[in-house]
């Protein structure tokens, strides 16, 4: 073959390969930029709320975090009231939602006949699809009167009379308040916790369960002594996932909390939460008041971020176990 004829060839395939490589690089770059946007969204949310709340977060740090006097007229912003309300309502929600979610997961994965599982599981998950504003309306117009008429008088009359814990259930049956908000939150997070629990229960190896049954265990013993220890970290992850939801929920609790900045021992009294303070006041707030509300948003973001991070780490440990 003549050596000089080689460079004379058009080399279309080479050009094409170069073009493809260039396009591949550009394509990859675009994709990467989009993926980095997700990172940026979280960083941005933290940075912008930190920036927006800088006046209060850095100027009055101590006052903001340790006092409970929230008075826009006198320009005093102590965040203990909302922080207290957020924590207490979320704790009530978790305390109520965890056993119920566990029961639902147990029912769906071990007890229910197979034809019943999918419809019931779908129905429970629909609870998560209902917009939170609907929970808020239902809470305000239906559940608050229900609590005031039927539940709270009975609580005051029974638990309210006990020593020590009685103080928690003392007070007029307003219907509005920390306890009602906690219950509404519990209903909202049940589908999240129960679907995680149900999912992780399904990862328990059948031979482990069958061995336990073969040794004569009852269904409950298999669930409590075999399945729960096997899935412990993921179950805790699911609970933290629910907690993260409860901490940040806004519309469902705004209507039923009663919007009071006082910290009171009784769960029947009105309170406020970080998210509901922001929702209620932000559009009327100016200056330091607005900065204080954005600072509250920053606090909420940091706390939920940590809780959700723990949740995901716990859940991830299980998926690794699954892989092995």
């Amino acid at each position: 073959m003549n050596a000089t004829s080689l460079p004379a060839e058009p080399r279309e395939s080479d050009q094409r390969a170069q073009r493809d490589a260039r396009h591949d690089r550009i394509f990859r770059l675009i994709l990467k930029a989009c993926a980095l946007l997700v990172l940026l969204a979280l960083l941005g949310a933290a940075a912008s709320t930190l920036w927006g709340g800088r006046e209060v977060l850095f100027g009055h740090t101590w006052e903001f975090l340790t006092t409970s006097d929230w008075n826009p007229v006198e320009n005093k912003y102590g965040a203990l009231g909302p922080i207290f309300g957020t924590l207490v309502t979320s704790i009530i929600a978790i305390v109520l939602a965890v056993p119920i979610s566990f029961g639902i997961a147990l029912f769906l994965s071990e007890i229910a006949p197979s034809w019943l599982r999918t419809p019931v599981a779908t129905a429970i998950e629909l609870l998560a699809a209902i917009p939170s504003i609907i929970y808020g309306m239902w809470g305000l117009f239906v559940f608050v009167p229900f609590m005031a008429d039927h539940v709270e008088p009975k609580l005051s009359a029974t638990l309210g009379q006990l020593p020590i814990i009685g103080a928690l259930f003392d007070g007029p049956p307003l219907g509005l308040g920390i306890l009602t908000a906690g219950i509404v939150l519990a209903v909202m997070i049940i589908p999240f916790i129960s679907s995680v629990m149900r999912e992780v229960f399904q990862t328990v190896p059948t031979r482990l369960k069958e061995s336990a049954y073969a040794l004569g265990s009852t269904k409950w013993e298999v669930v409590w002594d075999i399945m729960l220890p096997y899935t412990r970290s993921a179950v805790i992850g699911g609970i933290f996932l629910g907690l993260g939801r409860a901490l940040g929920e806004t519309m469902a609790v705004t209507f039923v909390l009663g919007n009071s900045y006082d910290i009171q021992a009784s769960l029947l009294m009105p309170g406020t939460s970080i998210s509901s303070s922001i929702a209620n006041e932000f559009n009327e707030a100016v200056g330091t008041h607005r900065s204080a509300l954005i600072a509250l948003g920053f606090l909420l973001f940091v706390v939920t971020f940590i809780v959700l991070m723990i949740a995901r780490l716990m859940l991830r440990r299980l998926s690794r176990k699954e892989g092995n």
Partner: peptide, 22 residues
């Protein structure tokens, strides 16, 4: 990114509203 995306999935929506406000 996958991990942070999962966190964004359940991040409080009101804080995202504040973020966009700022």
């Amino acid at each position: 990114i996958r991990f942070l995306n999962d966190i964004l999935l359940s991040a409080p929506s009101i804080v995202l509203g504040l973020f966009v406000y700022v």
